[in-house]
Measured scan of single mutants.
Amino acid sequence: MGMPNRKYADGEVVMGRWPGSVLYYEVQVTSYDDASHLYTVKYKDGTELALKESDIRLQS
């Protein structure tokens, strides 16, 4: 078993793309699913969504 190939840690605050949009919002990573390679993130309004790594970026 190798290390999970994840870029962002639980609790890390990053920018997540809103689905169907080009806009990124501040989100907190809450979990990562090794099987689906999706991150569960929480937006400031409390919305929780699963995002692909390509829809997440570090805060500038």
Rank of each mutant, 00 (worst) to 15 (best):
M15L: 13
A35V: 14
G46R: 04
S60L: 13
K52H: 12
V22N: 15
T40C: 10
V41P: 00
D33Q: 03
G20I: 02
H37P: 01
Q28H: 07
D34L: 08
K44V: 09
E12I: 07
G46T: 04
R6S: 03
E48P: 04
L51N: 00
P19L: 05
V29P: 00
R57Y: 12
L23E: 12
K44T: 08
L58T: 14
Y8T: 01
T30G: 04
G11S: 04
Y25Q: 09
R6L: 02
Y24P: 01
G2R: 02
V22C: 15
V13W: 15
E48G: 03
G20M: 07
T40D: 02
M15I: 06
L58V: 13
T47S: 08
K7T: 08
D33F: 02
G16N: 01
V13K: 09
P19I: 03
L38Q: 07
K7A: 07
P4T: 10
V41R: 00
V14S: 01
H37I: 03
T40K: 10
Y39N: 00
L38V: 09
P4H: 12
S31T: 07
L23G: 09
K52D: 09
L58A: 15
A50Y: 15
P19V: 03
R17T: 03
Q28F: 08
G2S: 06
K52W: 08
S60F: 13
S31Q: 07
L51H: 01
D33W: 02
V41W: 01
R6G: 03
S60A: 12
L38T: 12
W18K: 11
L51T: 02
Y25R: 11
E53L: 04
I56G: 01
P4S: 10
Y39T: 00
D55R: 02
V13C: 10
A9R: 11
T40Q: 09
V27P: 00
T40H: 11
N5V: 13
E12D: 12
G2H: 08
H37Q: 15
E26I: 13
G11P: 01
T30W: 08
V29Y: 00
Y43P: 01
S31M: 07
Y39Q: 00
Q59A: 14
E12K: 06
Y25K: 10
D10K: 05
K52Q: 11
G16A: 15
Y39H: 00
D45F: 05
A35W: 10
V27Y: 06
E53C: 04
I56Q: 01
H37R: 13
G2K: 03
N5S: 14
V27Q: 00
G46D: 05
S31W: 07
T30M: 15
T30L: 15
E53R: 02
D45Q: 03
K52T: 12
L38N: 06
V29N: 00
E26C: 12
R6C: 04
R17Y: 02
D33I: 03
E48T: 14
